[in-house]
Computed example of a mutant assay.
Amino acid sequence: MQNKNIDSIRIHINAKKAEIGAQLKAIRKSKGISMYSINKQYGLSRDRVIAIESGTSAYTIDSLILYSIAIGKEFVIDALITSLSINRCIDYRTID
């Protein structure tokens, strides 16, 4: 039972990472911001940007914050903090 729950959580997390990454990539592209400029101005490597935008590998919260600042959407982090502070978190123990 425990493994099924962990697998469900991982599937949910990966889906959310992909969804968030796709939205962030669309914002970056709509603003005409290149991966190169993010690397030069904020020190995020092309590989790290790809990891964030694809949602296929782990990245640090530091990288996500830098990325959101680089594309002018720091509110992404502010919204997450607000969501956590008002208890809108998903109770992963109930995911089937």
Rank of each mutant, 00 (worst) to 15 (best):
S34N: 13
V76Q: 03
I38N: 06
I81A: 05
I9Y: 12
I27A: 12
I33H: 10
L24Y: 07
T60G: 11
T60L: 06
A15N: 09
L24P: 08
G72N: 11
Y92L: 12
D91T: 01
I20L: 15
K40N: 06
I86D: 02
A18E: 02
I61F: 14
V49L: 05
N5C: 09
Y67R: 04
N14Y: 01
S85I: 00
D91I: 00
A26W: 01
I81E: 05
K17M: 11
D96E: 10
I13S: 13
I81C: 06
E19D: 11
R28D: 03
N5S: 13
Q41R: 15
I38L: 07
N5R: 14
D47H: 04
I50G: 07
I20T: 08
N5L: 11
S8C: 10
S8P: 01
L80N: 03
A51N: 11
M35S: 14
H12N: 08
N3F: 05
D47S: 08
D47I: 04
N39A: 13
M35H: 15
K40D: 11
A22G: 05
K73R: 15
S54E: 09
I86K: 09
I38Y: 03
I11H: 10
D62L: 04
I13C: 13
N3D: 15
I20C: 05
T94S: 15
V76I: 15
I50A: 13
S34R: 12
L80C: 09
I65R: 00
I27N: 02
I86F: 07
S30P: 10
K40Y: 10
S30N: 15
I77A: 08
L44E: 03
Y92D: 00
N87V: 07
N5Y: 05
A26V: 04
G55Y: 03
I11D: 08
D78W: 10
D7T: 06
K73C: 14
H12D: 04
S45D: 05
N87L: 03
Q41E: 10
Y42C: 07
S83F: 00
R48C: 14
M1Q: 11
A15D: 05
T94F: 03
D78S: 14
Y67I: 08
F75R: 09
C89G: 01
S54P: 02
L84Q: 13
H12Y: 14
Y42M: 05
K16S: 13
D47A: 02
L24I: 05
I90K: 07
C89A: 09
F75C: 05
I65D: 01
Q23Y: 13
D91S: 04
A15I: 02
S54N: 12
D47C: 01
I9C: 10
E19F: 07
V49K: 04
S34G: 14
I33D: 08
K31W: 08
Q41K: 15
F75K: 14
R88Y: 00
S30D: 14
A22F: 08
N39W: 08
A58M: 10
I69M: 09
N14C: 06
Q2D: 11
A22Q: 09
A79H: 12
D91E: 01
A51V: 01
R93F: 03
S37L: 03
A51S: 15
L80T: 06
L66D: 06
N3S: 13
R88A: 00
D96C: 02
N14R: 11
I71S: 11
K4A: 14
R46A: 04
S54T: 11
G32E: 11
L24K: 06
H12K: 12
E53H: 05
Y59W: 06
N3A: 14
Q41W: 01
I69F: 12
R28F: 10
I11K: 15
